[in-house]
Amino acid sequence: MTLEIVLFVIFALVCLVSGILMVTRVNPVISALFLVVNFGSLAGLYLTLNAQFIAVAQVIIYAGAIMVFFLFVIMLINPEHEKRFLEYKPQLKIFAVAIAVLVFLQIAYIILFSKPSEGVSREVAASVKAGTIEQIGRELFTKYVLPFEAVGYLLLSAAIGALVLAKKKFK
């Protein structure tokens, strides 16, 4: 067994267990923390796939920024009412299970019926090179410069929108 497989098994196990725990915990703060653990192990999985930049971006953006805001919201609104939401309406559980099964079947279909080697015939060295930040930066500013700039403007408009909404409250 190579080191790569050992690492994959460890990260995959952490990923699965933390994912299950995230869904089953009652306290939303604990759930959020297990989601952070899940993101961390996903970053580890990306590393074993030689996608270093995505791994670091996963930690910085998801674990470091987005989940902090999630935690903020959970801590500040203290969702006692939402915790007992399912007790009032147990029939909602059916929808939740149905959607979960549907998503699971979709993912299973993609994994089982698509050939991962199709169209991607890179050597290991080439795949290592493709994951570096230099390569991603070059691609973003040459081949994908238009979508990249478009996303930039989208984010700018979202930021301005947030600013306008936040300002109105104080009047």
């Binding site: 270093q52 670091v56 930040i133």
Partner: peptide, 21 residues
């Protein structure tokens, strides 16, 4: 590591958790 600076940024972004929690 060839992304050392990003590694530092990733870890410092996690340090928020210690204090917040």
């Amino acid at each position: 590591v060839n992304m050392g600076v990003l590694f530092v940024l990733a870890l410092t972004s996690l340090s928020v958790y210690g204090l917040t929690l």
